[in-house]
């Protein structure tokens, strides 16, 4: 009998085919159409911004997280998502800096993949919002030629803007500051001003459906975010018709991108299914509150970050009942 080299490992000796990198790269793949739509509306600038954030994120991951940690694809997701929640005219150096902050401050300081409390892409965006409040709220108008640069794309760090870009207010900005409602059709098909990822609601939903079907995304989170947003918006619309209705709330701003791609980040969302309902519902409530009564026109980012902070508590309160007991597991 030939004697093959045998290995000895602990049981179980079989393993499901899914792996962490496979999940991450599938998320990346599902983001490609979203980026393509952003490119369609905002041209080359959109692609450059996404490239800059991704390079910033990957470079930081490689530099401080080690060579091994790049291949799992999680830093790419952070970079792509951050790019998608920035305006197309953002100077590239700012976008790249956002990627650095997202991975550095949002992930690596906590100990790397799996350890972070907050969604790294949103940390990057929050950093940019605080550092460059003007650049991040300068929204180029959609639908100019593909090769038209939408702003100071190649500006050098800390210099004043040199070009005048054609800008447009976002639907939520219009609502908050000018009390104007954007037609629903424009919202769904993305022919409005806004961040890159605010314009492709349908593609985002398709990408989410694909991920949910493959089991790489828990459908409970986007569904609960949208449900709670819709319910609260409908109630408020009923109380006072000046508040926008549910459909406007769902399809405006970064809600779709946030609900489908950011709130569902496995690392920063609850591990229990009941907890996921609570988490999603909390995001919906917070974002409606911020949008209607807060100082900012858009509240998705802060709603998700605030609920990220609540995840340990949600996990603790929603532990499953252990078989054969009526007690709950103490977390």
């Amino acid at each position: 009998m030939t004697a093959p080299r045998l290995i000895v490992t602990a049981s179980p000796h079989l393993k499901d085919r899914d792996s962490t990198p496979r999940i991450m790269w599938n998320v990346v793949a599902s983001l490609v159409p979203v980026i393509a739509v952003a490119g369609f509306y905002f041209g080359i600038s959109a692609l450059l911004v996404v490239a800059a954030t991704t390079l910033g994120a990957l470079g930081t991951q490689r530099l401080f997280g080690g060579r091994d940690s790049v291949g799992d694809g999680s830093a790419v997701i952070t970079g792509l998502l951050l790019g998608l929640c920035l305006p197309a005219g953002m100077p590239l150096w700012m976008a790249a800096l956002g990627g650095v902050a997202g991975i550095g401050l949002g992930k690596l300081v906590f100990g790397g993949l799996g350890q972070n409390v907050f969604n790294p892409a949103l940390i990057g965006r929050a950093f940019l919002q605080a550092a460059f409040p003007v650049a991040i709220t300068t929204w180029p108008a959609a639908g100019q030629g593909f090769w038209t640069l939408r702003g100071d794309t190649f500006a050098l760090p800390f210099l004043q803007a040199s070009t005048d870009a054609l800008t447009e207010a976002t639907p939520l900005g219009l609502l908050k500051f000018e009390q104007k409602l954007t037609p629903l059709g424009d919202l769904i098909f993305g022919t409005t001003g806004g961040s890159l990822g605010e314009t492709g609601a349908l593609v985002i939903l398709l990408g989410g459906a694909y991920l949910a079907w493959r089991g790489y995304l828990n459908w409970r989170i986007p569904v609960s975010v949208m449900l709670s947003t819709a319910i609260l918006a409908t109630v408020m619309h009923g109380v006072d018709a000046r508040y926008p209705d549910a459909l406007f709330m769902l399809f405006s701003g970064g809600l779709m991108l946030g609900a489908v791609y950011m709130a569902t980040d496995m690392v920063t969302s609850p591990v229990t299914n009941s907890g996921r309902w609570v988490f999603g519902a909390g995001i919906g409530v917070l974002l409606v509150v911020i949008r209607l009564w807060g100082g900012l026109p858009e509240g998705v980012m802060y709603a998700i970050l605030l609920m990220n902070a609540m995840v340990p508590f949600i996990n603790r309160l929603t532990q499953p009942r252990v078989f054969g007991t009526h007690l709950r597991v103490g977390a």
């Binding site: 799996g114 591990v271 078989f323 977390a331």
Partner: peptide, 19 residues
């Protein structure tokens, strides 16, 4: 081995509902 990403699949697998 990769770090735990808290995907929660093990909670959905455990037949005695542990975490």
């Amino acid at each position: 081995v990769y770090p735990c990403i808290h995907c929660g699949r093990c909670l959905d697998a455990c037949p005695v509902f542990l975490n």
